[in-house]
Design a protein around this nucleic acid. Structure first.
Length: 226
DNA sequence: CCATTAATTTAGT
DNA sequence: ACTAAATTAATGG
């Protein structure tokens, strides 16, 4: 038995705007799903069948390269819709999504979702806000990273995890070193080297997947100076 | 079902 | 590229 969207504690900002009849419509056209860690939610190139809304858990958004070399685009937090730009800009999904931890999701019928956008301006506004924030965030991150050297990039990544994703200076991240490298466009080796340097300088503490940022201001400085 | 070992993946140099 | 460590899968009791 599915719990009501109206009382869902994980519902999106956009959904909290809907009135009773709209909520009922949404409820009748969506279903719940779960993913385990490392499961693929959907692949790039697949037809968009449903909107996937992430209620809990973190998701990796990436682009598969020709030679198994993946470009990681961003980490998607919970309470987000996956692949909205693809929904409105294309017929197929442009990116691939993988669960970084156990997820609970909702599948929403595309037409229901589109109709809500068309008929409820406030709902559409909230969706637009989230898509644009996401876009700005990503662009800034990519542009910043482009202008930086290895240490600056790694510092950037750590600050991104701590500030944007986890909102905490200690966090556990189920990304491999090469994944972190793929996120900022450097090699696995360089990632290791930078992380070790930061650790010996007492800026961070890390054991494989656990990270603790001891001196955020130092990372900030490294990030700014390149 | 649990314990050992084999195989694959990941980290570090 | 190579080695060590760690994680995961397979096997046998």
């Amino acid at each position: 038995m599915k719990e009501s969207c109206a009382i869902c504690k994980d519902r999106s900002c956009a959904v909290s705007i809907l009135n009773d009849s709209e909520l009922e419509l949404l409820e009748q056209n969506c279903s719940e799903g779960m993913f385990r860690k490392d499961e693929i939610i959907f692949h790039q190139g697949s037809i968009i069948s449903h909107i996937v809304y992430v209620r809990t858990g973190l998701v990796l958004e990436y682009l598969k390269g020709n030679s198994g070399r993946n470009q990681i685009i961003q980490i998607v937090k919970n309470r987000s819709y996956l692949g909205l730009p693809s929904l409105f800009g294309d017929r197929v999904n442009n990116y691939s999504y993988k669960a970084l931890e156990a997820l609970t999701v909702c599948y929403i019928d595309i037409n229901t979702f589109k109709n809500l956008i068309k008929t409820n301006g406030n709902f559409a506004y909230e969706i637009l806000v989230s898509v644009c924030q996401d876009s700005l965030n990503s662009h800034h991150r990519f542009l910043n990273i482009n202008a930086k050297q290895t240490f600056g990039k790694v510092a950037d990544a750590l600050l991104y995890f701590a500030r944007v994703i986890f909102e905490n200076n200690t966090f556990e991240l189920s990304l491999t070193r090469s994944d972190i490298g793929a996120l900022i466009g450097i090699s696995r080796e360089s990632t290791t080297r930078a992380l070790n340097k930061f650790q010996t300088e007492g800026i961070i503490r890390t054991t494989s997947s656990k990270f603790e940022i001891l001196k955020p201001h130092m990372l900030q400085k490294i990030s700014e100076s390149g």
